[in-house]
Design a protein around this nucleic acid. Sequence first.
RNA 1: GUGGGUGUAGCUCAGCUGGUAGAGCACUGGGUUGUGGUCCCAGGUGUCGCGGGUUCAAGUCCCGUCACUCACCCCA
Length: 427
Amino acid sequence: MSFQAPKGTYDIVPPASSAWLAVREALALPPRLSGYDYVETPMFEDTALFVRGVGESTDVVNKEMYTFDDRGGRSLTLRPEGTAGVLRAVVERGLHRGQLPVKVWYVGPNFRYEQPQSGRYRQHTQVGVETIGSDDPALDAEVIWLAVEAHRRIGLTKVRLLLNSLGCRDCRPAYRELLQDFLRGLDLDEDTRRRVEINPMRVLDDKRAEVQAQLTNAPLITDHLCGACKEHHDEVRAYLSDLGVHWEDNPRLVRGMDYYVRTTFEFVHDGLGAQSSIGGGGRYDGLMATIGGPDLGGVGFGLGLDRTILAVEAEGLTVGDRSRCDVYVVPLGAAARRRTVTLLRDLRQAGVRSDTAYGGQGLKGAMKAADRSGAAFAVVLGDRDLEQQTAQVKDLRSGDQQAVPLDEVVQRLVQAVQTQTTKENPG
RNA sequence: GUGGGUGUAGCUCAGCUGGUAGAGCACUGGGUUGUGGUCCCAGGUGUCGCGGGUUCAAGUCCCGUCACUCACCCCA
């Protein structure tokens, strides 16, 4: 009997796991520098929360949810997206009763029952932010900028930002009917005709050429925004210009959740194959009210960690620290081995990443392990050195080696590692 | 849910029209019994995804099945 990871899931293992950590931290850094607090919510919620929040017409709710009954007969669902759960938590814990807007960030897995392919998995991780309780267009711009800034810090250069406004409950219904009238006159297959009735805007970003060819004269939402939505959209774009953010207006950009209104955006990367979206988000005024909370608007995003890493790979970037430690201790002989245990403790307590060879490896093998660990320094400690209360400290980059009194080793290495680090990562 | 491609060593893969299973990398040991990275030598691994069929003989051909993968759909 042997086992493998469930279909559509994968393990994050070395050496790639170091990049995973680094990208996760990089995506989270801009929010942390911008007044966002960390939140964590359950990975499963009441099924009804997602049905109401995400929307009954969405594919996510209709065919992609991992739903099950627990032993108490409750219908629960592994969260397919992050926003609904965070809003539920904000309402339940009363976070909105303080100063507004509430600004939070989070990271964690989402689950959708999909057919896996490149960049699409049944479990994927997103870093997200939600801001609740303000309809200031400057906040829309800030949220977008956070993602742009994260991409910039990582070093990604081939990310495109697509921007649209979906209107609001005042102006969208009229546009929706206009669009439906147009779409009903086209030659479409049965599935698509059904979509025209359920979610007509989704037809606009159909990938098939024969569909797109018929859409050239389709009415566009941006031509039918109400005064307030148009003003909001213009202001968001003005702020983005001020921030030096580049974007492409895409009036056909539609997103998968029903809750989006006004601002919507998506980050796409052209080096990823079919699943090119590495993140997206938008404004969701009205969502909190539909899940039983006060009528506070909000704007947020989800950035796909998995796909961002694919983008990093596609651009040939190296991120993260591949070295496991800075100092590798090589003990020779039984007495030296005993002394190594406390030496390592002292190094680690002093904040020096350090390791040693276990299992009685020979000197040669241990030195080889030191090399592979990525350590900058090796400490060779033999019984011969121990008698003189010294250790041999070797600079593995230059090959220089010198004897250092044992009681000075930790202090000397702390300094040496610091020097090494600033040399390798200036600024 | 629907289509295409691929399953051979830990990893990447070779194996032409059927004839006794291979390379590189990695790993371990040695050359150097107190010194890594380069070099040289030695060493191990295989239910050839699984089941069935054709054949004197199947990694190779046929059928089925499972898994992986890419794409549609949809999304991060």
